[in-house]
Design a binder for these strands. Structure first.
Lengths: 253, 253
DNA sequence: CGTATCTTTGATATAAGTCAACAGTGGTGG
DNA sequence: CCACCACTGTTGACTTATATCAAAGATACG
């Protein structure tokens, strides 16, 4: 399965005030002092290779990250190696909040592509709560958003058929990717293998392959460049019976 | 399936300072001012009938609740009525945080037994963040804990076999119930039907029944008084390959 | 009692898993 | 430059887990 530890810290490049993500319409405006405070907390940037493990279950990481660019996924393993992917991470998402708040990590995170991460010290989290209630509230908001996504994923894995699940998953990822500007060429390209999809949907690799083929036959997706190209996101949503993300603007930390 | 709306507000009975839950060893000590503040926020108590809907998907509830006594569950529905139970709620758990933070509820909550709830105003949430950073942090902690439980549930539904899932579920609920003192008679009694279990595990009712029977044959559980009696929690954990909850003390809001 | 809600069971159907083999791809080292 | 290897995707044959259907017992309840 995975994965070598390929990291390299790079010197700081983007001050938060000129963060390329912050200008996207999905993210709410921050007050000057909030932004300055965040900027002060930022410790640097971390470049991560594709396939590298960012965080590992059982560890007590001293860091908290925000994805600047690239894709990753969160997962848990059963004792015998069966893997369940819990969610995907893309630009603007926080990595490691659970571990920061509660201590030990209970899941692992692996990069799906080369990534650039903003690094924060775990210890500074409390400082946010003391000095910037608005930002503290934002962090709770972010945790609630993750919970909401997990609710949806659990509904899908528990109650949808294989093809509905696959359609939901692609539509879900594509919807999220779109709002953070990951559709440069107009159609979104998700850098995952069919094994990842299988481990997300709770299906076997072979059955996943046959299911994906059906989506391709229906002209909803294509498989190219070692990943999934999204052709008809509305068709996917309809097939899955999924309403889509009901999100307005959100905070970026 | 469900369920009538049976609520009745009762006049206030327990001031937070004499909350019967707070003295349990699972809950961390609160400072006097924290406790006073919480007590001030508490608006009253709400008695809910078994089977009643506490919160409904799509609504904008003005309230946030803490379970004083009784059991409930969170769930989501697909358009055609398929139901997925996401998690269970028992004394000490918060109800409706997601909705309070993000606005609209994206799941429903139904009582499994008669319940008593502490009622808080949604609007006062921000006040907590402004005046009590420690409590604000606790709320994020609680949200992270819920996320963690969902991670485990998703792992289970996605990757465990039917009997492993059932064993995990019972062990999981029983472990949580034990630490909040729900084992008066020593052995824990979970007030659910097999339909609830089916909708939690993502299985059909018939298959769930046959699976539960296997657990009974193995002397791990019994079915009595319209609910599940937990006989051998260690045996269940072993069958599921589950390590158990790794929780220390937690906040009670 | 009579009715509704749960649980149980057997027979059958279907979705998904497993096994096995092969084809395309890209990388690496001789 | 080629041979080899690892990884990914594809397919068909077969097995198994789980779903569906149908009916009958239990059990609680008014």
């Amino acid at each position: 399965m995975p994965s070598q530890t390929g990291r390299s810290s790079s010197s700081r490049q983007y001050p938060c005030e000129r963060c390329p993500l912050r200008s996207l319409p999905v993210f709410r405006e921050f007050e000057k002092p909030e932004l300055a405070f965040i900027s002060k907390l930022k410790k640097g940037e971390l470049a991560v290779d594709k396939g590298a493990t960012v965080l590992v279950e059982g560890s007590h990481s001293a860091h908290l990250y925000t994805v600047l660019s690239g894709w990753a996924f969160r997962y848990k393993l059963l004792q015998d190696g069966r893997r369940q992917i819990l969610n995907y991470l893309m630009p603007g998402d926080l990595i490691g909040l659970q571990g920061s708040v509660m201590g030990e990590m209970q899941h692992s995170v692996e990069a799906l592509s080369p990534m650039l991460l903003c690094v924060f010290e775990r210890d500074n989290l409390l400082e946010i709560y003391r000095n910037h209630p608005g930002l503290a509230y934002d962090i709770t908001w972010i945790a609630s958003r993750e919970e909401r996504m997990l609710d949806e994923n659990l509904l899908s894995v528990g109650r949808r058929s294989a093809i509905e699940r696959a359609a939901y998953l692609v539509a879900f990822i594509a919807s999220r990717a779109k709002v953070v500007g990951l559709n440069g060429t107009q159609s979104i390209q998700i850098p995952i293998t069919q094994q990842h999809i299988a481990d997300t949907l709770g299906l076997s690799l072979v059955h996943t392959n046959k299911t994906i083929r059906k989506l391709m036959d229906r002209q909803l997706i294509v498989w190219r460049d070692g990943g999934c190209g999204v052709v008809d996101i509305e068709g996917l949503k309809q097939l899955a019976g999924w309403e889509g993300l009901a999100e307005g603007r959100r905070p970026l930390i």
